[in-house]
Design a protein around this nucleic acid. Sequence first.
DNA 1: CAAATATGTCAATATGACTGACGTAAATTC
DNA 2: GAATTTACGTCAGTCATATTGACATATTTG
Lengths: 181, 181
Amino acid sequence: MTVAAASAGTPTHDAADEPSPEVVQLVELLFFAYRDFTGDADAILAEYGYGRAHHRVLHFITRYPGLRVADLLLILNITKQSLARVLRQLVESGLVVQSAGDTDRRERRLHVTPAGRALMRRLVGAQVRRIRGAVGLSGNGAEAAVRRFLTAMIEPETRDMVTTLLNLPKLPKDLNGELQP
Amino acid sequence: MTVAAASAGTPTHDAADEPSPEVVQLVELLFFAYRDFTGDADAILAEYGYGRAHHRVLHFITRYPGLRVADLLLILNITKQSLARVLRQLVESGLVVQSAGDTDRRERRLHVTPAGRALMRRLVGAQVRRIRGAVGLSGNGAEAAVRRFLTAMIEPETRDMVTTLLNLPKLPKDLNGELQP
DNA sequence: CAAATATGTCAATATGACTGACGTAAATTC
DNA sequence: GAATTTACGTCAGTCATATTGACATATTTG
């Protein structure tokens, strides 16, 4: 039904890739929804002189206390040089503390401070408000459908890592070994 | 942690903003899903030496031929200086052409060239593949639910603009208040 | 004609990402 | 115990995308 509506003028190659209006709508909705979703946090972060990168780092350290630098690099998919500046700022402003690992003292286990938790509360508060409102507007069963959709949008190669990450309170072993004593 | 405090039954401040594990999962799924979604296009764009900004501009000019610069600024929510560089590159590479408006010759109506359409076909092809795959994995009725959710995630003030633009059904106004602070 | 509008442009700056190379401390292996 | 690997940091340079502010130009409108 949807593919049949493919445009009149352009030469078709692979019909499976031909855009239907419905799917193009989803592309655009994703753009606008994500733009406004991140906008919530951006506005708060701007008060502190932080950016989106600080938010991501703070988020995952809050969510997985004792995280190591290498874990963050894997999760965020960035280079250590990119992470370094952001992490240093967070440590210098007292939002994050580092401590040597128990068994391996080369590791820097990362933890948020009460000040970091306070900022995270504001940030997650805004995000939660928007998401809960949207779920409320989406009708019955929408939350489960959205969860499945977003999960399926993740690159298959990393999907298992992510789903494991989100289901467990701590990072899984196959990421980098045990996290917590 | 705040989650523990909330599930313990004693809301510390505003219970409506207290993060539940389910909603935090959605926050993280949005991050990973959007990252991989844009990754598809980023890889193609890199071949041409373009970035995500070029994609967005090309996308909306393709979708709405004859778009003006001012329209793009409203849609993308960026400054004209930011747009200028990207747009100039697209025009210089022959992906986009400008022409004076019919009634108002100050306007520059924007159109994609066949070369621009060719690039867009590749970009949208990758996006459509991922979205169709995800919709297929999400079960019956998921697409409609996702569409409503993403629409509801958009800032209420601009939601009508977007739904009009995308030719989508508008959400009921009386429920919009749930998104307000 | 004056004012408002649509757009462009010059200049300076910030953020967040990259590559490549090198350093250091601690753990592991030979 | 020396050599290697690992975890992490840092210096230096680059790039893409965004910002603000000021000014220019053409065109429409009052």
